[in-house]
């Protein structure tokens, strides 16, 4: 199988590491060769962060370049716009509708673009936009929006539900398991 590429993008601190681990777990269960490339250190501090997940028969490079991503999972609207050039023609964009102003917008040096999701759709891109934050809060905590988004993404990937559920069980600490199971379910229903 040709290598598939997924990107998880968002703002440092939004929980993309758990999302990538969950996805990696699913892909390993399915018997693929998997590479996951993460960001640590300085850029984690509220900056724009990206995680690459690649799978196939044999994966070489751990990173994804422009025009290569089959799916982009975005935790925030502006980040969806930023990383759009990485989406392959015909790829899927799954994004949370959450907005977080970057510092140049806070200081007034730049403006947050309006109607990002509509504009991306107008470019002919397949977009699923979900209010992951509200769904996560319904599940019990805003922190679970990463797992909500994974629930949404699960509808775009042809893997059985029990594989996803097993991944959630293996990646999430016991005391938060019920909450995250609920978050995943809410995401899957919204997808």
């Amino acid at each position: 199988m040709e290598t598939k590429s997924i990107m998880i993008v968002g703002v440092g601190g939004q929980g993309s590491l758990l999302a990538s681990r969950l996805l990696g777990n699913v892909l390993l269960q399915m018997g693929y060769d998997v590479k996951v490339s993460e960001v640590h250190g300085m850029s984690q501090r509220g900056g724009s962060v990206v995680t690459y997940v690649k799978y196939g028969d044999k994966v070489s490079s751990p990173i994804v370049c422009k025009g290569e991503a089959d799916i982009i999972i975005s935790f925030e609207q502006l980040e969806a716009a930023r990383w759009l050039p990485y989406l392959k023609k015909g790829g899927h964009l799954v994004t949370s509708t959450q907005k977080i102003d970057p510092m140049p917008v806070i200081t007034g040096a730049a403006e947050y673009p309006d109607d990002i999701i509509e504009k991306i759709k107008a470019q002919g891109v397949d977009v699923i936009a979900v209010d992951a934050l509200s769904l996560a809060e319904t599940a019990g905590t805003a922190k679970a929006s990463n797992v909500v988004l994974m629930g949404v993404v699960s509808t775009k990937m042809a893997f059985a539900l029990d594989v996803w559920e097993k991944a959630v069980e293996q990646c999430v600490p016991e005391k938060f398991l019920e909450l995250n199971k609920k978050a995943f379910k809410l995401g899957r229903e919204a997808g």
Binding site: G47, S48, E79, A81, P85, P102, P104, A110
Partner: peptide, 10 residues
């Protein structure tokens, strides 16, 4: 994306 996207530094 058709418009300029503000940077998001750490």
């Amino acid at each position: 994306f058709a418009e300029s996207v503000p940077v998001r530094p750490p």
